[in-house]
């Protein structure tokens, strides 16, 4: 808390300021909506398709493909990330460190282009699903590794030392003492990492893997309602990812409680 509970004058001032802020925000939204309407983008005919089941079935099928891809990327990146994290903390860290640092500085889109253009030149043409999943997993593995490493480093050093003094081997110490505590530390950032990964699957349009965004594009191509379709697709992403983030906050709160 960097501010005092306001006194009577402060309360009045903050009420006025709040009212002004609300009015300004509402006015901006209203102007945008009215202009949008004037451009004919709010016509009922342009929105009615999104009240029909076939359209939603199509978009939800796309969402399912997004979830499948995200789950596979999560699995691969988490396993590889864990290995990389321990590699980096081992006595022979540099190849792992090099992987993490190099991959972190290459855009995923460029990695996708490599899978798309370079590998086929050598006769290796992966199925669409893997053209999306592989480069994303390669990229997110580096990020997962950093999340896991931060989690392990956040565990108090005394804990590991206490384990060692009890005669636990390094592996036992990790498994029984350090990791259980590290997991609690990393859960929230793991979830926000997952949100990022789910958003990245939108790159599926580059390889024409039919996930949510690409489904939206095919749909827009068919119904010629570009803006409406993208607004709806954006809303679906928002709902899914906000639910995930909410889960993260819930876990965080529970972790904080049980740690006490």
């Amino acid at each position: 808390m960097m501010f005092d509970p306001p006194g009577p004058r402060g309360r009045r001032r903050s009420r006025i300021a709040s009212a002004v802020a609300v009015v300004v925000v509402l006015a901006l939204v209203l102007v945008a909506v009215r202009r949008f309407d004037a451009a004919g983008q709010l016509e009922v005919a342009k929105w009615r398709p999104f009240l029909t089941w076939p359209v939603w079935r199509y978009l939800l099928t796309g969402l399912w493909a997004t979830v499948l891809a995200a789950a596979m990327i999560f699995l691969l990146a988490a396993v590889a990330g864990l290995a990389l994290a321990f590699g980096r903390m081992s006595s022979f860290p540099w190849p792992f460190k090099a992987y993490i640092e190099v991959v972190r500085t290459i855009p995923v889109l460029l990695l996708i282009y490599v899978v798309l253009f370079v590998l086929p030149a050598y006769g290796l043409d992966l199925p669409l699903f893997w053209k999306l999943v592989l480069p994303l997993a390669v990229s997110h593995a580096a990020q997962f590794a950093e999340v896991f490493r931060a989690g392990v480093l956040a565990v108090d050093r005394g804990q590991g030392e206490a384990g060692a003094s009890l005669g636990l081997t390094h592996a036992q110490n990790m498994r029984l003492v350090v990791l259980p505590q590290a997991v609690r530390h990393v859960l929230p950032s793991l979830v926000s990492q997952t949100v990022g990964l789910l958003k990245d699957t939108a790159l599926g349009y580059v390889v024409s893997y039919l996930e949510l965004l690409q489904s939206g594009r095919v749909l827009a191509n068919f119904n010629h309602l570009l803006i409406q379709t993208f607004l709806v697709v954006g809303l679906v992403y928002l709902v899914v990812n906000a639910s995930l983030s909410k889960l993260a906050r819930h876990l965080e709160a529970r972790g904080a409680r049980s740690a006490r």
Binding site: P49, L51, T52, W53, P54, N223
Partner: peptide, 9 residues
């Protein structure tokens, strides 16, 4: 709104 027909356009 399941019964309605497909996409216009």
């Amino acid at each position: 709104s399941g019964g309605e027909s497909a996409v216009p356009g």
